[in-house]
Design a protein around this nucleic acid. Structure first.
Lengths: 239, 239
DNA sequence: CGGTTGCTTGAGATCCATCAATAGGAGTGG
DNA sequence: CCACTCCTATTGATGGATCTCAAGCAACCG
């Protein structure tokens, strides 16, 4: 099975076999990172971007009063520094939520890949723009959706994102993070996440047993949470 | 007085007089846009980015139930499409909040300016990265700050952003948007914005009479709202 | 003036947080 | 295999934060 990074980028541009070979060659061997560990940039390599191969991670911010807010959620195939190719300043921390396999991607090799192929260039810009669109939709959730709507919207989004990298089986997928993490992601308390999940289960639209999430009624869940897949651009940058 | 766009970019790189001349030359004459009007990209020009010269605008999203969430707030000197130089898809609408003077900036002229000077390149990347940092901090506010904290944080941020473009006099500045707009920006109801503003006034940290906001105790307001100016990088990309 | 827009206030309901306690499961060491 | 601990999920009770509905007021503007 193809690398999740490749699988995802195929949605952003029509990559040729040569493009895929180039991309594959710049992904260095993955190394394990333990659960709940900060991924300092140097922890990987200087001038290298952490690419998730397996497991989930996040970018987060901590307020002076100790509250945590997860800003972005990263799943397999995601670059944890989508702006990595740009001059950048490290504003926020990146941490794993589960055990993670992570490959360092060297910036200079990524840059030469971009120069070598306009399709790779297109695919990486598509990835960056989709990442920022996800963050914006996240912001809309925090501002205007109720707890159950936030959860429903997240699960609809994850259904599409995980499907792009081949991690959906039928209508179900692994959801390996804790309810406390969901709270930090969605701006809710852990207790309220728990109760809202129960309410979602009661509607019958979805179920969550153990770490496996199953969507029983996709259209219903989308309607409940005002989900419109457009922002994920699964049809590519030119679609 | 220099153009607000120039004033701001000076914080991002050490522009030479030649750089500034190049930048000035690509800013086309400003045209007025009425209050509360959508700024369709074509409304300005194809392949041109709306640059705010005077007045405030925003990017927003509307949910299926009619609720509005403002995603980004734009003040003089801001490009309403910070990703403008990239291939992009129009996800969200841009609208004016006040009467606005807006200059179209042609993408191809911006690109050649970037190529002509590494300092212009640096300044524009700095601007883009600060814009996204602002959006992230906004997300943190919606997720984890109370109503008064959100307002206080916003006013601290605006104090710095407006100061960069010369729109702060002493400790006060014009705050020309309505309380309903503040609600849509901060994920609150108009009524609650009103009451939270009163509470902030009661603390004496700031006051808001008419459309003029005055900060009486900057450190106090920052502490109240967990404001850390770092994300705005007023010292430049290399600071 | 009369209409519109924005601001303010009151009352009541709802959503969500906090505090506290319990239960289950996974790992760990004896 | 058992006792222990830690982590996660769950439940109840209560209070606080915020929303909604409704009304009144002030400023501005044609």
């Amino acid at each position: 099975m193809a690398h999740p990074f490749l699988r995802k980028l195929r949605f952003g541009a029509r990559l040729t076999p040569e493009d895929e070979a180039v991309l594959t060659s710049i992904i260095e061997p993955a190394r394990p990172v333990r659960q709940r560990e900060d991924v300092a940039e140097e922890g990987v390599q200087p001038n290298a971007l952490p690419l998730i191969v397996d497991g989930w991670a996040c970018r987060y911010s901590t307020l002076a009063n100790g509250q945590r807010q997860i800003i972005s959620l990263f799943i397999p195939g995601d670059l944890c520094e989508p702006f990595g190719m740009l001059p950048r300043f490290m504003d926020h921390s990146v941490a794993t939520l589960t055990p993670v396999l992570m490959s360092p991607v060297r910036v200079e090799r990524l840059k030469s890949a971009v120069i070598s192929s306009p399709r790779i260039d297109e695919a990486l810009w598509w990835d960056l723009l989709v990442s920022t669109a996800i963050d914006r939709e996240h912001l809309v959730s925090l501002g205007r959706r109720t707890a159950t709507e936030r959860l429903g919207h997240l699960f609809c989004e994850l259904h599409l994102r995980l499907d792009m990298v081949g991690l959906v089986e039928g209508m179900s997928y692994e959801m390996p993070i804790t309810q406390a993490d969901l709270g930090d992601l969605l701006g809710l308390s852990m207790v309220h996440v728990n109760r809202s999940l129960q309410e979602l289960r009661r509607t019958g639209l979805m179920s969550l047993r153990g770490r496996r999430l199953t969507i029983n009624n996709l259209d219903g869940l989308r309607e409940l949470s005002y989900f419109d897949e457009g922002y994920l651009h699964p049809e590519g940058a030119n679609g």
